[in-house]
Write a protein that binds this DNA or RNA. Structure first.
Lengths: 338, 338
DNA sequence: CTGAAAGCGCTTACAG
DNA sequence: CTGAAAGCGCTTACAG
């Protein structure tokens, strides 16, 4: 308890030096005698002194807080993503002496973010996803707040970091085509999420790379509910589509349910893949072919970028992280093709 | 941008009053002339002045930050709970002029929490779950940091708030028994989570209330993986158990998968219920009978309690929130009992 | 009702 | 290499 009230002035007095000296001994800035530094450091350690970061911040016009913007809407499938992101971010921040301040925003309300900025509680911000019409991003730009976006955006002024969703989807789709898929359907979520568009592009890239492929493909976007998926799947079965590509594990789960209800065997009668590998499908049988990203690493790097920016260092505007395609049972070449 | 640099001194000078007066006009503390106050307030609004909360904090020895402790381990089923909690907490905090600082802890590492406390970045803490051997809780107590725990604990000194898991499980189990269940099994997660124990107690309460009930019941705790569930279900089928009670939706999902694989009809041949209603099972067919809590409300109230404590108000040490039992198809009385 | 001054716990030119 | 002093942007006894 007592340590909590120990101040730099106490130490200075105790050691018979000035506050300036103590400050310098701790920060390492400014010239200071080796011996003096040691004396101070020993005292500090012995008494478990730790500086008041808030006061330090006030003097330096910094807060040592990073703002983390999280969507407040509930979408179960994305939750593991955000949690892992948070983990990576908060670890990296912690290691650099920063803490993470939370701002939850919804499509129409970014007041929590505004508060944090207005109250000067943060030095910079990490956005955890990008939208086509991105209110938080706009706000930060207008107010000159440094930030990095997890996700992609065409605005070349924003420092952004993302997994290569397009490349990943291109490769996965390519494998399906090369594996003999003749008719396939893509089911995706909201188009306002830029990641949705990138996945779609990757899907299409694969066809463009194979001009000789002749088959049928169709795309359903902005699909959000299980009911919609149900309808779509029903239609696809009538049209004898043989492969369903889902943009995320929630949609994939719905597709699997719909197929199960209708007694359609996977992969026997229908191949199914997901463009995102969360734990939602973990216990599914058969195991689902999908793409895996290292999300915690994404969080760590995003935070690292922001930290660099805050240090005044120049950073790459665009960072693209890798992916891993995991082929599993749901796309095993079917013994009796549909 | 300019507003961001506006200080109380600027306003004082501009208005020809002292900083003291400006400060008082804003805080409402201390006597001040109605006219002066109005002048200041008008200026403040016109120029979008907003005080530097950090400086204010330094002067008042407060931070206006609340620490939020979240588990860093990944458990998909609990994620919606924590997200909703966060939402409720951050909204309430925001409304009261506080921000939320994140600390992710794991079973063996609470360094992020320690950092936040040591750095004097927070005024109080909210714990989002309780454990039998709770390291974060112990740390906070030892360091005299005010906190409230979401969840229950026997330590009567800690301000705690929880949904009535025990009562909810008692009622749900009771309904199953009254509905004619003759042999049932309880499958639950880690015993170190106090919520697990409370659910188990509620389960047992129901039997004690019905001394005439004669049937078979068994309990499996510390079940964590799909494989384990598989084994258990297999055994239960051999023993002709007719009702499986799952402590959470993850376990329930595993149970359903196992039953499906073995072509066991729900509820026809087996009744299944879950003690926690997340969105994980949302699209399951049949719909699963379970218990529903208002988690965002839980977060709001927890935050409200902490805020009261910080204001020096006395609060109820123990708050118990309600629940809702949702009877669904998975427990419809079977037409041809097993 | 209002203000000058000291203080919150740090940092950092500036001078020595 | 070290220190006195001013400053970060607020609040708050104390005096008037």
């Amino acid at each position: 308890m007592e340590e909590r009230n120990l101040t730099i002035a106490d130490i200075a007095q105790e050691l018979g030096v000035s506050k300036t000296t103590v400050s310098r001994a701790m920060s390492g800035k400014g010239r200071i005698g080796e011996e003096t530094r040691k004396r101070v450091q020993e005292y500090v350690e012995a008494h478990h002194y730790s500086p008041n970061v808030v006061a330090k911040g006030l003097a330096q016009n910094k807060t040592f807080n990073l703002g983390l913007v999280l969507p407040g809407d509930y979408n179960i499938v994305e939750l593991p993503f955000f949690q892992k992101c948070m983990m990576g971010i908060s670890r990296t921040a912690s290691a650099a002496g920063y803490d993470v301040l939370l701002s939850m925003v919804t499509a129409d309300k970014i007041t929590q973010l505004e508060r944090a900025v207005t109250n000067r509680k943060i030095d910079g911000v990490i956005l955890t996803r990008t939208l086509t019409d991105d209110a938080p991003m706009r706000y930060l730009q207008e107010n000159g707040v440094p930030f990095v976006a997890i996700g992609s955006t065409e605005d070349v002024r924003v420092v952004q970091i993302d997994n290569d969703h397009r490349g990943a989807c291109r490769e996965l789709t390519g494998r399906l085509l090369d594996g003999g898929a003749r008719s396939l359907a893509l089911i995706g979520g909201r188009e306002e999420f830029i990641v949705t568009r990138n996945r779609q592009r990757g899907f299409e890239d694969a066809f463009e790379e194979r001009p000789d492929w002749n088959g049928v493909r169709q795309t359903f976007l902005n699909v959000e509910e299980g009911r919609e998926v149900e309808k779509i799947v029903e239609g696809l079965l009538e049209e004898r589509v043989g492969c369903i590509v889902c943009m995320d594990d929630f949609l994939c789960g719905c597709v699997l349910n719909a197929l199960q209800t209708r007694q359609v065997a996977v992969p026997g009668q229908m191949q199914v893949v997901s463009f995102y590998d969360s734990t939602v499908l973990e216990n599914r049988i058969p195991a689902i072919t999908s793409i895996r990203f290292d999300v915690e690493e994404l969080g760590r790097k995003a935070c690292g970028l922001l930290l660099q920016i805050l240090e005044g260092e120049a950073v790459e505007v665009r960072t693209l992280l890798g992916y891993e395609v995991r082929m599993r049972e749901s796309t095993k070449r079917s013994p009796r093709p549909y």
